[in-house]
Write a protein that binds this DNA or RNA. Sequence first.
DNA 1: TATAATAACATACGCAGCGTATGTCGATGT
DNA 2: ACATCGACATACGCTGCGTATGTTATTATA
Lengths: 206, 206
Amino acid sequence: MHKPRAEMIAQTRAKLVAAARQAFGTAGYADASMDDFTSAVGLTRGALYHHFGDKKGLLEAVIAEIDAEMDARLLAVSSRSQSQWQGFVDECTAYLEMALEPEIQRIVLRDGPSVLGDPATWPNQNKCILSMSANLKRLSADGIIRPGDPEALARLLNGALLHAASWIANSPEPEATSRRAVEGIKDLLNGLLRFPVATPANASGC
Amino acid sequence: MHKPRAEMIAQTRAKLVAAARQAFGTAGYADASMDDFTSAVGLTRGALYHHFGDKKGLLEAVIAEIDAEMDARLLAVSSRSQSQWQGFVDECTAYLEMALEPEIQRIVLRDGPSVLGDPATWPNQNKCILSMSANLKRLSADGIIRPGDPEALARLLNGALLHAASWIANSPEPEATSRRAVEGIKDLLNGLLRFPVATPANASGC
DNA sequence: TATAATAACATACGCAGCGTATGTCGATGT
DNA sequence: ACATCGACATACGCTGCGTATGTTATTATA
């Protein structure tokens, strides 16, 4: 029964990450006081520096946690799709929807790049890109889309999706804007198909 | 001879903006000390607070200046193109190249969104979007591209271009990556055309 | 032209927040 | 059992922001 040591440690780390995630997500990284959100879970900055080195280290941990969740959610979505093409479109849509969440917008998409540098330099951010480019590679090999550079396309589409999310989130009418964005994305993706479907309306079919 | 008052004021503002632009572009917004870069041009924080209210206000001014320069450069590029389609492609390429500059990356693309909120909420950032969507609208009306939502497409392409710029800038081989990105963009844009041109890569299709 | 008013700054002060250095206590290994 | 070490808390100094308060020169007014 004497093994709760490692558990306590993990719990402390988890509490710190959770507290920081809450604070970063609402107040933003710069305005989140380490004294405040550590004491909110009954700890001090001492524990924080011991486990994460500094404030940036904690942000990295928070982002890693969020990124892992995003990856799992994307995996769950694509595993439920029938056709390859449909799975790809579904993943794009799910990615866009996730990017709409304020916590992800604030921590991963805005403060993250500012504090930790460009996401392209992170070890994590590749997860989504890799998954996306793998999909595109298969689609290209199977002749479903026109030949091209899968990774380049994945990065371009990734940027388009993230930007669309910001557009939607800050729109006065998010619902309508979301529909416009999704239509636009389908339009873009449709242009990649070797044999595009006739009308944009049923671009998601196939 | 007595009119240098307004001139001196404008000069002070310009010096502050220039100093801040230099500091923000190299050290980043968070690590740029107001005391440091004001004294670098023979002023103090007093002048800064008088003219710009606070540090964020100064960042807004810096971004506005950079944005105006970007807009002028884009205008110059598109005015030199013959066809509408070529002009659009040229503008996209120029936009990508500008987004490669470290100063723009750091100030406008990373720190700006983090400090001032999403660019979609700025009054300026619309310049490029508006110009882009106007181009797309004309292209659509003239039947050069397939029908669609010009503004949505503009935002998606804008995101793709910005993301591509980050990808290139942080790539170990920027030259090669740049070529891949440009090819990918052309591929994407080509998919928008009503009658896609045959590229060496997909000469057999369509 | 003398003086009042105001704008353009500089100076001075207080305070929040980060990082480090140091201390304490309980768990683990032998 | 005792020594060691890891997991935190405490204490301290320093940087840097914002504000409140001068100081000086230009403009307005009489």
